[in-house]
C-alpha cells in the first residue's frame, strides 16, 4: 500500500551533499569490514566523501574489489583485501596489508555481518556460528587489533559499529542476529569506556531497514516499494544517510561522542498500538506471503 499523499515524509539531502567537508578525514585511513557491498559500501563511500583513504575488507576478494572500484570514483585511494574476520591471524594480516599500502588505520567501521530469516529450531550449529561469530568475534578481533596498534603509536581514533534496530526488542524469526547485534551494541559501550583514556572513541548505529541489492527484502519480487508504508517515517532508509551518520560519529564534529548507540530506523522499532495485526508466529509466517521458505 502506498503512503497516502497527505502524509509528510521527511527526506535527507542528496548523496552529493554530505554533512561534512571533503577533507574532514584527510590524511586518515578507514578500514571497513564487509565494505564491498550493501551497508558496508555505504559506510565506505561516506568516509571517502570526507577524504579518507579506504581499506575495503571482504570475505570475497572479488566483492571487495568491486566495491573498491565504486569507492575510488569518489577520488580517494582504495585498497581491497580478503579477510575472514573470525580468524585473528587473517585480521592481523589485513591490518598489516592495509597499513603497508595506505598508511596507519585510524578509523574502523565494523560492518561485516551475515543475516537471514530462519526459525530458531532450524538454525544449524554452522549457521549459528557464522552469524554470531562474524558480528561478535569479528567486532572483537578487528576492534582490538585496531586499538592495540593505535595505543602502541600513541594515536587516537574512532570506531563505528553497524548494529540493528531490533537489539532492544528481540527479533523473532532471526534469533542468531538478534543475539549477535545486541552483543555488538553492548561491547560498544564497554570498549568505549576501556579505550577512552587512549583517545579512541567507539559508537554504534542501531540501523533500521536500508534496502540494497544484497538485503533479503531487496530480492523480493516487486522490490521494496511495498515496505514503505510499514515504517512510521513513511519510507525505508536511504542507504547514504546511514553511511553519513556512521561517518559523522567519527568526525571532529562529534569529538566527545563515545559509548553511544544511536537509533536510525524511521521509528520502525517503536511501533506499538492498541490495535495491531494478529500475532503470527514465525513458524506460520515462514510459509506465508512474508515468509522465506
Amino acid at each position: 500500500m502506498p503512503v497516502p499523499d497527505n502524509h509528510i515524509v521527511a527526506m535527507p539531502p542528496p548523496f552529493e551533499e554530505p554533512p561534512y567537508p571533503a577533507d574532514v578525514f584527510a590524511g586518515q585511513t578507514v578500514l571497513v569490514s564487509g565494505g564491498g557491498t550493501g551497508m558496508g559500501l555505504a559506510m565506505a563511500r561516506a568516509f571517502a566523501q570526507g577524504g579518507a583513504q579506504v581499506a575495503v575488507m571482504g570475505r570475497s576478494l572479488e566483492k571487495a574489489q568491486e566495491g573498491a572500484g565504486k569507492i575510488a570514483t569518489l577520488g580517494v585511494r582504495v585498497h581491497a583485501m580478503s579477510c575472514d574476520v573470525r580468524l585473528p591471524d587473517q585480521v592481523a594480516a589485513a591490518f598489516d596489508e592495509a597499513e603497508a599500502v595506505l598508511g596507519p588505520v585510524t578509523l574502523l567501521a565494523n560492518n561485516a555481518g551475515a543475516n537471514f530469516p530462519v526459525l530458531a529450531e532450524d538454525i544449524s550449529v554452522n549457521a549459528w556460528n557464522a552469524v554470531t561469530r562474524i558480528a561478535i568475534d569479528g567486532t572483537f578481533l578487528c576492534s582490538t587489533e585496531f586499538a592495540r596498534r593505535l595505543i602502541a603509536r600513541g594515536q587516537g581514533g574512532a570506531i563505528v559499529n553497524n548494529s540493528a534496530q531490533y537489539i532492544w526488542t528481540g527479533f523473532p524469526g532471526d534469533a542468531h542476529s538478534a543475539a549477535a547485534k545486541t552483543a555488538q551494541a553492548t561491547m560498544t559501550r564497554k570498549m568505549a569506556r576501556e579505550w577512552a583514556p587512549y583517545g579512541i572513541r567507539v559508537n554504534a548505529i542501531a540501523a533500521g531497514f536500508f534496502p540494497h541489492e544484497t538485503s533479503t527484502a531487496g530480492r523480493r519480487e516487486g522490490g521494496t516499494e511495498v515496505l514503505q508504508n510499514m515504517i512510521p517515517a513513511g519510507r525505508t532508509g536511504s542507504i547514504h544517510e546511514f553511511g553519513w551518520l556512521s561517518a559523522m560519529t567519527c568526525t571532529p564534529f562529534f569529538v566527545a561522542l563515545t559509548g553511544q548507540v544511536i537509533l536510525q530506523d524511521g521509528g520502525e522499532s517503536l511501533r506499538r498500538s492498541l490495535m495491531m495485526p494478529d500475532y503470527v508466529p514465525p513458524r506460520e509466517r515462514a510459509e506465508g506471503p512474508w515468509g522465506w521458505r
Partner: peptide, 29 residues
C-alpha cells in the same frame, strides 16, 4: 561543542530517518 553539533544534526534534514531516538554524548550519560 559535541552537544551543540549533535543537536544541530538532529534538527537538520540529515537526521531525516532519526526519530524517537534517545542518546547521550559521553561515557557517563
Amino acid at each position: 561543542e559535541t552537544l551543540g553539533n549533535l543537536v544541530a544534526y538532529l534538527a537538520s534534514d540529515y537526521a531525516a530517518y532519526v526519530t524517537g531516538a534517545v542518546m547521550g554524548v559521553g561515557l557517563d550519560d
